[in-house]
Amino acid sequence: MDPVAGLARSSRAQAVAAAIEHEIETRNLEHGYKLGTKTDLRDRFDVGIGTINEALRLLVSHGAVDLRPGAQGGVFVASPAPFVRLGRKMLELSKDSVSVADCLMVRNALDPLVISQATQHRSADDIEALRRIADEMSQDSLSSMDFLRINWRLHLRILEIVPSPVVRHMYGSLMDFVQQRVLHVNEDVADRAHSRVVHRDLVEAIASGDQKLAAKAVSAHQNLLEGGNFPGGQERYG
């Protein structure tokens, strides 16, 4: 059975990205090796355009592939920058060396920088994309894990706006580590309702371009992260 079949789109994208990274590493594919076109990869993994685009965004953020336009373009194995290799080494430590709580602590410390940079550099397309994801969070039919995955997708979309590759790779690697280790969520209705408000305010603060408003929204978001009912420690994963 296809391992990505039956998964939510964000999960399918992560599975496709992981499979491609595994292939690059196990086959020791060199920089510049052509993995195929988007169409080739869609056909190979039997997924839609949205899923393959999301998978490629993950791979680019990991420094695993380059996307080249044109008739001779496609998806190529990238040559990771030194800080990307360092980021990977950080996450190759044993389970005892790196905990979810450790990663969340560093990720949360980076949040003010990420939100400030996103507020400064956001475009109209970015704002539209963020609002669309925030709208997805308002669906009452979502399971707790699906709600959390959309939450994470919102943060990763915010991260795409940040111009610093160092910040993008560090924050993205920490998010990947957390996502791969969260198996379930204990949540009540009040938690979700409050989270929706906080994340909507975060999006609107970024859209406004107002750094003071963004700082206030970050503060509210970090208050949301304190305490909580999620497994693996005393911090929420939102």
Rank of each mutant, 00 (worst) to 15 (best):
Q179I: 05
V203F: 07
V197C: 04
H169Q: 09
D176Y: 03
N186P: 01
H221C: 03
S143C: 08
V203Y: 05
F230N: 10
F230V: 02
W152C: 06
I150A: 11
L148Y: 12
M145D: 15
D140W: 02
L142G: 14
V203N: 08
E160L: 08
W152P: 01
F230D: 04
E204F: 05
V203A: 08
H184S: 13
D176W: 06
M145T: 14
Q211V: 07
A190G: 02
F230E: 11
K212P: 00
F177K: 03
L224I: 01
S138V: 07
E160F: 01
V182E: 05
Q179T: 14
D201M: 05
L202K: 09
L156N: 06
L183K: 06
L225V: 02
L159F: 08
R168M: 03
V203I: 08
A217K: 08
V198Q: 06
S219N: 11
P163I: 11
S138Y: 01
Q139W: 04
S143D: 12
S141W: 03
V218D: 01
L148R: 12
Q222I: 04
S208D: 04
R192I: 12
L224K: 05
K216L: 05
H194N: 12
N186E: 05
H184V: 02
K212G: 08
G209P: 06
Y171D: 09
V198D: 06
V185I: 15
M175R: 08
Y171W: 06
R196P: 10
Q180S: 03
L159M: 14
R200N: 01
R149A: 13
G228L: 06
S173I: 02
N229T: 13
S143R: 09
E226W: 04
S144T: 06
Y171S: 07
G228K: 06
V197K: 14
V167N: 03
K212H: 03
R149H: 14
R192K: 09
E226V: 15
A217P: 11
Q180Y: 00
F230S: 13
Q139N: 12
H184Q: 04
S138F: 03
L202R: 14
Q180R: 07
A205N: 11
R157T: 15
N186V: 09
A207P: 01
A217I: 10
L148A: 11
K216C: 00
L213E: 10
S144D: 15
A207N: 07
S219W: 01
G227P: 04
R153K: 15
E160N: 13
V203L: 08
L142N: 13
L183R: 08
E160C: 07
Q211C: 01
A214Y: 04
L174A: 06
V178Q: 09
V162H: 15
I206M: 07
D140T: 11
D176K: 11
R196S: 12
Q179H: 00
S219E: 15
R196C: 14
S164F: 00
R168W: 00
P163E: 08
I158A: 10
H221W: 03
N229C: 00
M145W: 03
Q180E: 15
A190L: 06
N223T: 12
V189M: 02
R196Y: 07
S138A: 13
K212N: 11
H199L: 13
V189Y: 01
V203Q: 09
V203H: 07
L159G: 14
H194C: 08
Q180F: 00
L142R: 13
H169M: 03
R157W: 00
E204T: 08
Q180G: 00
D146Q: 15
I206L: 05
V218P: 01
R157H: 11
